Amino acid sequence: MEEEAKGFVRRVLLFKVKPETPPDQIEEAIKRYSNLVNLVESLKSWHMGTDVSIENLQEGFTHVFELTYESAEGVAEYMAHPAHLEFHELFWPLVEKVVVIDYKLTPFRNPN
């Protein structure tokens, strides 16, 4: 896997948006968030989705985002980037709860 060899880091974010947030405000924030991949060099990809689970185990989380960075240092570069800080100021007031997990891609080889 090419991403493993390069030391890429993935970030998974789960967001629970405040229920009183108007849908158009959420949509505008997501558009701005998606544009960060064009503004921050270390951010290599950006994907998002909304919950469609039938298991009802999402605990109120409504949106998932997956970002890929070139390295752990790239995550730090992203966090300090002015475009990210500007987005954070816009989006954070809409958020009720967030979960963030960063991980390096790790190969799993079944011994069987």
Rank of each mutant, 00 (worst) to 15 (best):
I26M: 14
E55L: 15
F61S: 04
S34L: 11
E86I: 05
F87A: 01
A76H: 01
E77I: 06
V100C: 04
T50A: 11
E28T: 14
K104A: 12
E86S: 13
E59I: 04
Y103K: 09
V52R: 11
L94W: 05
D24I: 12
E86D: 14
E89H: 09
V17E: 04
E27C: 07
D102E: 12
F91D: 03
P82L: 04
A83L: 04
V9F: 05
M79V: 10
V12M: 13
P19R: 00
P107C: 03
N56M: 09
W92H: 11
V40T: 05
V95M: 07
L43N: 04
K31P: 00
V37L: 00
K104P: 02
H84C: 07
P111C: 01
A76K: 08
K31Y: 02
N112A: 12
Y33P: 01
V75G: 06
Q25I: 13
V64Q: 12
K97T: 02
F91Y: 06
G7Q: 05
Y103A: 09
Q25L: 11
L36C: 01
V75H: 08
G60Y: 06
L94N: 10
I101T: 15
F15G: 08
V64E: 08
P111T: 07
L39F: 03
V75N: 05
P22D: 06
F15R: 07
D51V: 11
S71K: 03
S71M: 04
V64I: 15
Y33L: 12
H88K: 15
F87D: 07
L67R: 06
E20G: 02
K44I: 07
F8I: 03
L36N: 00
V100M: 05
T68Q: 07
L36I: 02
P23H: 06
S34I: 03
A80Q: 13
T21K: 08
E20N: 03
H88Q: 13
E89N: 11
V75E: 06
L57Q: 07
D24V: 13
H47Q: 15
F91W: 08
L13R: 04
P111V: 05
L85P: 00
V12S: 09
K44G: 06
D24G: 03
S53K: 03
L90V: 13
G60I: 12
R109I: 15
L14R: 12
L94V: 14
L105D: 13
P23N: 07
A80H: 09
V64R: 15
S34N: 14
T68K: 10
V12E: 08
S53W: 02
L57K: 11
L43Q: 14
A29H: 01
P93A: 02
F87I: 02
L36F: 00
P23K: 03
G7S: 01
A72E: 13
E70R: 09
M79R: 14
N112Q: 11
M1C: 09
D24Y: 12
E3T: 13
L85S: 01
L105Y: 12
E73Q: 13
A72D: 07
Q58D: 11
V37R: 11
D102A: 12
E89K: 14
D24E: 15
I101K: 12
V95N: 04
W46S: 13
M48K: 08
R10K: 15
E28L: 12
S42H: 01
V98W: 00
H84Y: 08
I54M: 04
K44E: 09
E89T: 09
V12R: 07
K16V: 02
T62W: 05
E86K: 13
V99S: 08
E70T: 11
G74L: 03
D24H: 14
